[in-house]
Amino acid sequence: MNVCGGHERAITLAGLRSVLPPGIELIPGPGCPVCICPEEEIYQAMQLALHEQITLLAFGDMLRVPVNLPLREIRTLEQAKAAGADIRPIASPTEAVRIAAGLPGRPVVFFAAGFETTIAPVAAMLAEGVPDNLALLLSGRLTWPAVAMLLNSGEAGFDALIAPGHVATVMGPEEWEFLVQEHRLPAAIAGFTPDSLLAAIYSTLRQRLEGRIFLDNCYPEVVRAGGNPAARAVLDRTLDVVDANWRGIGTILASGFALKASLAAHDAGRLYPSYNDPERSRLGQMPAGCDCARVVLGRIYPDGCKLYGATCTPRTPVGPCMVSDEGACRIWWAGGVIASGQRETV
């Protein structure tokens, strides 16, 4: 299993599955932060943009994820923007600072979803100091607790893990040692090129065949012992690790980031009321008929969902896995995969 949309993209676009011998399956797992971002948090961001006098910033991927509302209503940040809300896609936390600094007196909310690689830059932005009018709606997650949860569930459905290269660059490879220590699972950290991924796949196979299980580093260019100490320091200084909800999965212990109390003045979760009505239909769930939850968990391949390529395509996405550039469904569809012949993993 891989747990990174960047890995899945490289695997699919290079056609690695088609050249591997039978018996080796590459399963896309929970590797897409947009896909597991709680539906109610996207809803909250959208309602803030529609009902508060604010400017909302978000990474571009997030703008087209539909929330569970009737088709006639405003269902995405993109539609809210078209309806007049001030919503701006950004590509870097530095843009959030620049935009907020350029709008003195106007509240700016940065809806930041991402894994460690994205949240460390957000933490760096906070540590460096942000304008008074910039607040964060943070939906940051740690990747390894999701893998630990799958392994502890008793039905993991995979025999080896390709660990995410840039998460390990920031946090250090040591985070993934539990795979070997606690689960005797072959594991290798990979970069984002076919050769690094092939090296990692080969390493895990050899580990299994030789019975010599260890955490291999197939991305030594940037993955070093201890990770990036400055990045980890800014994370520690600005954010707490908390239990967090993953869309389609549920709560995973110690798997999310939250702003420290000292940054309460920049915490949009504290500054604004919740617009989520607990009575709203399908609150927090995946859309009706959508199998994104099982895709995210690696229980089925994208084409195992009956909506894949039928009613759900990148032009008319139903679930988040078909929206995000890191969603397995979108990657498979962009890669021309109509049917894989491998629909279920367990």
Partner: peptide, 22 residues
């Protein structure tokens, strides 16, 4: 900002993610 412990010079190469060298 996240390479404060490193002596980064003009001409060096860095891995960049969402506008930050990691």
């Amino acid at each position: 900002f996240m390479l404060q412990g490193e002596d980064v010079q003009v001409g060096d190469h860095v891995m960049v993610h969402v506008g930050y060298a990691i």
